[in-house]
């Protein structure tokens, strides 16, 4: 039984694409056949984060328009088995996405035996974001520890539970909260919203907290999903998210401010 998961946030720049890439790679690394679809038509980024930008021949819109088959457009990842990327079209806009077109692509992926179909949503609440969430069974809502991001996440949760296909049919989309770019030191200093405050405001279950880390930017620029960097805290935190998503009980990590070493500790270790 395949599952469609949308990675969304409302606000831009919070880490949706990074999270989609990391999450999909993590699922595939754990042996699940996974496809990740870039819904950001016109502002294609997922291919860069996944490091496949030079391998894009056909894209999502080509498949919807019948100009290419799904097989031709899907790019198989060279580092992780079971991982496929469906890039967005860079030369078109969001209007190229139609409900029927998106549905047929998702159904074909399901028939091809994909366990997980990860939809990387564009920012905003317009057509692209709407198309990305419409067929979702579950949603990962990416939020930064700041008020505007929390409010936008709240907005997208409302849309998810009222306008998605599952909601229209009277069901509920399963929600997961993913807090990214979290800096425990700054939370302690009082200039960043704390994890508990965000959970309280959004009142949905927390699936993970990704610490602010230079390795994320580095990974993005080099086109390697951050989960593949086993040393980085962000990579480990994303892997924890994948484990929790698959039902494992993993404690939260990297949420405490690092202990400042006192004078004697510095001297004597």
């Amino acid at each position: 039984m395949s599952k469609v998961i949308v990675v969304t946030s409302g606000k831009g720049g919070v880490g949706k694409t990074t999270s989609s890439a990391a999450f999909a790679s993590g699922l595939a690394a754990k042996g699940h056949k996974t496809a990740v679809i870039d819904f950001d038509v016109g502002l294609r980024n997922l291919d860069l984060i996944m490091g496949v930008e030079r391998r894009v021949v056909y894209d999502f819109v080509n498949v919807i328009n019948g100009e290419a088959t799904l097989k031709q457009a899907l790019i198989k990842d060279k580092r992780v088995d079971n991982l496929y990327i469906l890039p967005a079209s860079q030369t078109r806009d969001k209007d190229a996405l139609t409900t029927e077109g998106v549905e047929s692509v998702i159904n074909e992926l399901k028939e091809d035996g994909f366990d997980y179909i990860v939809c990387d949503s564009p920012a905003g609440i317009e057509k692209g974001a709407f198309m990305a969430l419409y067929f979702a069974d579950e949603a990962i809502v990416v939020t930064n520890p700041e008020v505007s991001s929390v409010r936008d996440s709240d907005r997208i949760l409302g849309i998810l539970q009222s306008r998605s296909k599952v909601a229209e049919e009277g069901g509920t989309v399963k929600e997961h909260l993913l807090i990214t770019r979290y800096s425990p030191d700054r939370v302690e200093g009082g200039d960043m919203l704390g994890m508990d405050d965000i959970v309280e405001i959004l009142s949905i279950p927390l699936i993970g907290v990704i610490p602010e880390s230079g390795s994320v930017l580095q990974a993005s620029n080099s086109g390697v999903p951050v989960v593949m960097d086993k040393e980085s805290k962000a990579g480990q935190a994303y892997m924890d998210v994948v484990s929790r998503f698959l039902g494992e009980d993993v404690p939260m990590r990297f949420i405490q401010a690092e202990q400042k070493k006192g004078f004697f500790k510095k001297l004597f270790g």
């Binding site: 409010r151 936008d152 709240d154 907005r155 949760l157 409302g158 009222s162 509920t172 009142s203």
Partner: peptide
């Protein structure tokens, strides 16, 4: 019985 979200 569900949260009333921003914009709703």
């Amino acid at each position: 019985d569900r949260p009333v979200r921003s914009g709703q």
